[in-house]
Amino acid sequence: MIRHIVLIRFRPDVSEAKIAELFEELHRIEDKLPGLIGITSGRSDSPEKMERGYMHGFVADFSDWDGLQAYQDHPEHQALGAKLVDHAVDGKEGILCFDLPVDV
């Protein structure tokens, strides 16, 4: 399994309602890709308080690297990715992606 981890530093002027709307759009892709196992999204509630401004994010689990690639190539993902960049602090600089192979 591949765990795709995305952390986002949204601009201060982006409301929680707008962030929820963006995450709702993200979840609409769940039933459209066979290699996508599921998506979890939200705001950090960490007691460690080490987010360094990355207060929102999501995790998408894929069956394999081909599933992740299908997601990355999907037009709805690309459109949403552009919106996330538009709403992040300093564009792409405000988004951190990390792909982790996970043994299950």
Rank of each mutant, 00 (worst) to 15 (best):
S41C: 09
L100S: 13
A88K: 10
F23K: 01
A20N: 06
G67M: 09
H74E: 00
V85C: 08
Y54D: 05
E30K: 11
D13E: 15
H74R: 13
H56G: 02
D64M: 04
L22P: 00
D61W: 00
K92G: 13
D99H: 07
G53V: 01
G81M: 06
L7D: 11
R9E: 13
S44T: 13
D90Y: 06
D45F: 09
V14R: 06
W65F: 10
V102Q: 12
P47G: 03
L68N: 07
S46H: 04
I95T: 06
D61P: 02
D61Y: 00
P75W: 13
L68I: 12
D73T: 11
L96V: 15
V6I: 11
V104R: 10
H56S: 04
M55Y: 07
S46G: 12
F98R: 06
I95R: 07
S15Q: 10
G53N: 08
K18H: 14
W65A: 15
V14W: 02
A82F: 05
F98D: 08
E16S: 05
Q78I: 13
F62V: 02
E48M: 12
G91D: 03
F62D: 05
R43P: 02
H27V: 05
F58R: 04
I5A: 08
V59W: 05
E93D: 14
L96R: 10
L36E: 07
D66G: 06
K83G: 02
A20F: 01
D90F: 04
L84N: 03
I5W: 05
G81A: 15
L33S: 02
L68R: 14
D45T: 14
D86F: 01
S46W: 04
A88E: 04
A82Q: 15
E48F: 08
G35C: 05
A79W: 11
E25G: 08
L68V: 11
I37K: 12
D99S: 03
S44Q: 09
A60T: 03
R9N: 13
M1C: 12
L26D: 00
F58Y: 14
D31L: 06
V85E: 14
S63T: 02
V85P: 05
M50I: 10
E51I: 00
D66Q: 14
G35P: 05
E16V: 03
A79G: 11
G57H: 04
A82P: 05
K83L: 09
L22N: 02
I8R: 06
E51K: 00
R43Y: 03
W65K: 12
G91H: 07
V59P: 03
P75N: 15
F98S: 14
G53F: 07
P47S: 07
F98H: 13
F62K: 03
K18M: 12
E30M: 01
A70H: 08
L33H: 04
